[in-house]
């Protein structure tokens, strides 16, 4: 998962304006509201966005604020209008590579980091085919799905799942492969 906080620039011709980002989790806002924590990546930064993925580590609402700094001058804080909860994250379908090694149907999924698992669905392309499901705990490692029968075509699709936020992505595009040919995106 990746979470970016973005803001508009403060116009200051021929000057380098820096920005500082701070956050509060729900714990701080409920029980220690005077506490704001400097973001791990952007305290300060000269960019207009901040990767707050390592700051948003719990599935609770987070407040964010940013201010501009020019020399000794600092602006007022600008605070996010609505707190952000990572359970609203939209996950994109994972990239995958389906190949056949001899008689074996093999899938390799994109490595999206330690929080991701994958649901892989595969079937033999024939009328009334039965779908098989396999949970793959991490990406980047080829996984054997099935021993294929010569001449048959097999199809695969996958979706990403993040347990920490209880959300899954849409399914990837279906990829089919037969014993002789290359994988055929459908």
């Amino acid at each position: 998962m990746k979470h970016l906080l973005m803001w508009n620039p403060v116009a200051q011709p021929r000057e380098t304006v820096l920005y500082s980002v701070e956050y509060q989790g729900e714990y701080e806002s409920l029980y220690m509201s005077h506490i704001w924590i400097p973001s791990s990546q952007c305290s300060p930064t000269n960019g207009l966005e901040c990767d707050v993925t390592d700051d948003v580590t719990a599935t609770v609402p987070y407040n964010f604020r940013v201010r501009a700094m020019l020399g000794s001058q600092t602006s007022a804080w600008s605070t996010l209008e609505h707190p952000f909860n990572r359970n609203s994250t939209v996950l994109v379908a994972p990239r995958m590579e389906v190949t056949e090694h001899g008689l074996h149907l093999v899938v390799k999924l994109e490595d999206l980091g330690p929080q991701f698992e994958f649901l892989v669905v595969y079937w033999r392309k024939e009328p009334g085919a039965t779908e098989h499901v396999k949970v793959v705990k991490s990406g980047n490692t080829p996984v054997h799905l099935e021993t294929m029968e010569p001449g048959a075509m097999y199809c695969v699709k996958a979706q990403a799942w993040v347990k920490a936020i209880g959300r899954h992505s849409t399914f990837s595009q279906i990829q089919c492969v037969d014993m002789q040919g290359e994988s055929l995106p459908l």
Partner: peptide
């Protein structure tokens, strides 16, 4: 320490969840 603050915050908010 900001770094320790972040780690404690991570645990405190996870406990809240």
């Amino acid at each position: 320490s900001p770094e320790v603050m972040r780690q404690i915050s991570s645990i405190a908010n996870s406990f809240l969840y």
